[in-house]
């Protein structure tokens, strides 16, 4: 990119009461992504511009916003791929705007928590006190791996037309995560979790517009997870399937964090390692 190139950045701003579009003209030196551009504007032109960021490599999920009409991660959107002389950025839809490009994420956090996103075992003690790992194949891992990529960026929620209409809808992120644990070969919370999503604002509100999967930056493909979960739920309702047995650990349980290990003295007759 040529150092003398300039671009116009238009930002949808909000200061608690007033909403307006603000334009900045700025050079592209040292800029690859939209996030670089925002940082440059903040450092050089306007210290009051508010947006979130952290990792700059698309894994922390901070920098979601609507860029030229589509919800995306600012750090993962290159200016060159936008192919436009003007970059328009707005805060994500479907979440309350707090300031400029920053939105409140309370419902993302709450809904995610509602679907019990953790390994549920019939015998809970196994989690902390089993002496070894569950043996799971790579194929077993692949059943849920894709859905575990979720960085909680909120983009799918911003894109989802059902969330627009029903703000209480569990939403693609949470439903995707419900399926992530449902599909985990170690999990035994199949029936419990399916009951949770089978609710007035739950899974049946999804009509498969697929916008979530379209904008997801990590190929979590929540739409796929949700449709596959509908199938599981139908199996449950039709009593074709009743539950799921997780991978097993047969060895006796034992305390994991023991005093001996904490205070173990090194043996005196060490051999040198190399």
């Amino acid at each position: 990119m040529n150092g003398s190139d300039e671009i116009i950045l238009r930002v949808r701003r909000f200061d608690g009461t007033r909403e307006w579009w603000q334009s900045y003209q700025i050079g592209l030196t040292g800029v690859t992504s939209v996030l670089d551009l925002l940082n440059k504007v903040r450092e050089e032109k306007d210290h009051t511009l508010a947006f979130r960021q952290s990792c700059h490599m698309g894994t922390c999920g901070s920098c979601g916003m609507v860029i030229n009409g589509k919800p995306r991660l600012a750090c993962q959107t290159n200016i060159s791929e936008l192919d436009a002389g003007v970059v328009n950025v707005e805060p994500m839809h479907n979440s309350p705007v707090i300031k400029d490009l920053v939105v409140g994420l309370d419902s993302l956090i709450e809904n995610h928590k509602k679907v019990k996103p953790y390994i549920i075992r019939g015998k809970k003690e196994e989690i902390f006190y089993a002496p070894r790992e569950f043996e799971v194949t790579q194929e077993g891992t692949t059943q849920f791996l894709q859905f575990d990529y979720c960085i909680m960026c909120n983009l799918c929620i911003s894109a989802c037309p059902t969330v627009t209409i029903d703000p209480l809808f569990l939403g693609p992120q949470a439903l995707g995560q419900a399926f992530r644990y449902l599909a985990d070969p170690r999990d035994e919370g199949w029936a419990e979790r399916l009951e949770l999503v089978d609710d007035d604002h739950g899974i049946w509100r999804c009509h498969f517009a697929g916008a979530c999967s379209y904008v997801c930056p990590k190929d979590v493909d929540p739409a796929k997870a949700i449709q596959l979960m509908k199938k599981e739920l139908l199996k449950k309702r039709l009593l074709i399937r009743r539950g799921k047995k997780g991978a097993e650990i047969t060895e006796p349980l034992q305390p994991h964090f023991t005093e001996e290990k904490l205070t173990a003295a090194p043996p005196l007759d060490f051999k040198r390692g190399d």
Binding site: Y118, I119, E126, I127, F128, A130, R132, E133, F134, E135, V136, T137, Q138, G140, T141, F144, L145, D148, Y181, D184, R186, D187, H256, F257, K261, L262, A264
Partner: peptide, 25 residues
């Protein structure tokens, strides 16, 4: 000495470590 248990604990709370053919980590 304490590292081993941590890897295994994280496995049991759901972490998708890459696996070998025999199901070991």
């Amino acid at each position: 000495n304490l590292a081993t248990d941590e890897i295994r604990l994280l496995e049991r709370i759901g972490l998708p470590w890459n696996r070998r053919k025999d199901g070991k980590i």
